[in-house]
Design a protein around this nucleic acid. Structure first.
Lengths: 226, 226
DNA sequence: CGACTACTTGAACAAAATCAAATGGGGTGG
DNA sequence: CCACCCCATTTGATTTTGTTCAAGTAGTCG
């Protein structure tokens, strides 16, 4: 385990309230795994035996339905966890996790986790915190899918990348446009057109670099589309 | 507290694993509240001081955004809980809860709950189970919003009302069509038209009663729209 | 009876998906 | 180093889907 690994683990919602010893005790070094791009980390419907925390790279969570269609649910980067809830209730993965880039992650044994939760109330609360963050993210996801148009969802995505800044900003798209399109619930074509539309609102595009003239005017555009 | 109240509480995901004493100890009778139709039970953004379990009636959860628009997130009936996650993490309600009909519910004090979770691991696991159910529901919600068309989402809703039966079935819409429309992410007009379309697939409409000739052909229609 | 509300229907419009084709790097093998 | 291919992205044309606005129907409750 590298110092960076340790740092990511410590930052995660599950472990950031615990003591060093508790965490070290938990994460045995053999639980760290490297996975190549495109590999499936978990498959929807299979027994949920591990909880995961990303150390490096990006993981895509998607649901797929009987007829081969699939929907991107979320993207997880370093220090973020996924598949917590499954390991504790249904016992079956409710989505498929795929490595979007080369990925390094910690796999934590589910039954081990369950046992420790029973013994350590602080861990239980951390776990609840972690799942409730995911719940909130999904809540916002649904809200935006229902209320905003495509271009507005993209604008919202860009604003969230820019963070709390005001005025002008340079934003770099964190992954492929296709994938962002999927996450925002549209086709790559629609994404491309949405991006074109945003030019009128002060967004200049250069590959994966976006030059935003005025973030607040983007925010205003979002508000107008509701 | 009526026997029915007690039954609903015992059936809830939070309490169904606990002993009678533990539950009785928890739910003091003064925590039971009756609320009239249309009343707001929680307001998005306000401090989350209570966790809720529905005893009678229906509660609608919605998110609303700055510009007055709102999106229905979910509908909760007897024995279902809502706002669990909030009481344990952010400390602020992340949605607004409104009584869709006359509602009777239990309000459980958040700080009390937190304390008990710290002492009782079994309760912590129940809580995790309860939130992870909500997580799964939302996951499916997102999937369907992204993959299915309006009429297909409605068909899916009807199929889920019918349950596991096959062949023909009579289904009664559990609440107003407007509300179902909102939940499925469409306007009342679109809902009405979607329902008309389903006539071609063997659904006869009479007020809130639906006569489905063959549920499997509805399922097939859903699959085809993907 | 009359007002209210939920629902339905129609027509015009807007948004997004689809199909098809062009563009344009990035990398591979010659 | 260059030609070539692969893949992501863009663009155009068309169709599908869904919204909006407007009007009409019907049941309900006072």
């Amino acid at each position: 385990m590298t110092p960076n690994d340790w740092q990511m683990i410590r930052k995660s919602a599950l472990f950031n309230r615990l003591t060093d010893e508790a965490v070290r005790d938990f994460v045995t070094s053999n639980a760290i795994v490297d996975v190549e791009r495109g590999a499936l980390i978990c498959v929807q419907g299979e027994p949920a035996e591990h909880y995961h925390i990303v150390l490096q790279g990006l993981v895509k969570l998607c649901r797929h339905s009987a007829h081969g269609q699939s929907a991107v649910i979320s993207i997880h980067g370093p220090s973020q966890a996924f598949m917590e809830a499954e390991t504790l209730s249904s016992g079956v993965y409710s989505a498929t996790a795929e490595a979007v880039s080369a990925v390094r992650l910690v796999k934590i044994d589910a039954s081990n986790l369950r046992q420790r939760i029973g013994r350590d109330p602080e861990l239980a609360l951390s776990m609840l915190g972690s799942t409730s963050i995911h719940l909130k993210v999904l809540l916002e996801h649904v809200e935006k899918l229902k209320i905003l148009t495509g271009p507005a969802r993209l604008a919202d995505f860009i604003v969230s990348l820019a963070g709390p800044q005001t005025g002008s900003a340079e934003v770099v798209l964190p992954y492929e446009k296709q994938l962002i399109a999927g996450q925002l619930g549209m086709t790559p074509e629609s994404f491309s057109r949405a991006l074109s539309q945003l030019r009128r609102h002060g967004v200049q595009v250069n590959r994966d670099r976006l030059e935003v003239k005025n973030i607040d005017s983007l925010r205003e555009f979002i508000a107008r589309s509701m």
